[in-house]
Amino acid sequence: MSEQLNVPTMAELMAEGKQPDILFWVGSAGSYDDRAKKITKAFVKLLNKANVNFAVLGTEESCTGDIAKRAGNEFLFQMQAVMNIEVLNAYDVKKIVTCDPHSFNCLKNEYPGLGGNYEVFHHTQFIKELLDSGQLEVTENTFKGKRITFHDPCYLGRANNEYDAPRDILKKTNATLVEMKRSRNTALCCGAGGAQMFKEPEPGAMDINMLRTEDALETKPDIIATGCPYCNTMMTDGIKFKEKENSIVVKDIAELIAEAKGL
């Protein structure tokens, strides 16, 4: 952890007359939420390790507006989108990577209609590419014999049909990949989507993240792997509620790969 992270901003690079290959969209959770910040840092370590020429917007980044749109506030969403697009286009951004499937979906599918056309990657897709191209290697056996179950984020899976990238990465770690009964396109939501993260749930028999945690526990995992900061929070809460936090860890794929690399 002592190693300093190399996180250039677009403004800094521009001042030096440089252009990064890809923009890392950190997102609000990745910037402010204590748990999600660890995911952000783990992903940056991987980017640094693979010598990826990237940059962040830093203080020029703002909420994508995705949550506002799902909460019904189309006006606020479009205001945010248009402001962000102005910044992104001013820096001539072509490629974006993000650890948040909600930002991923919004930037990839909903920004083009408002003038923001970028090639957008989820960080699991990007890590897979780094591994496939040999820019990053995982040969360590950190997870050998460990049972890992992957919880599909709705906005990566069903919303955008990406089920394989996260699994392909996990397979490279020599871990035992175990699937929940509801997985891939029938995966159960963690309960945070559609702006639920920011409100109390409606009255019901139980919270959604509890049901999903039970799905995960059935696989008797050592690790629950996630690919979304909100899913991570929901599953972490679920594991704590089930008093399993001493035997099961909930970690993002970026964190697992950083760990496997001893970063």
Binding site: V7, Y32, D33, S62, C63, I67, A71, Q80, F198, K199
Partner: peptide, 23 residues
Amino acid sequence: MMSNIENNGAPWPYNQQDRLNWK
């Protein structure tokens, strides 16, 4: 949550100037 986004560009009441503090 929505007024936070309007005021400081995040769903939580954090200052936009602190966005890169994690670094």
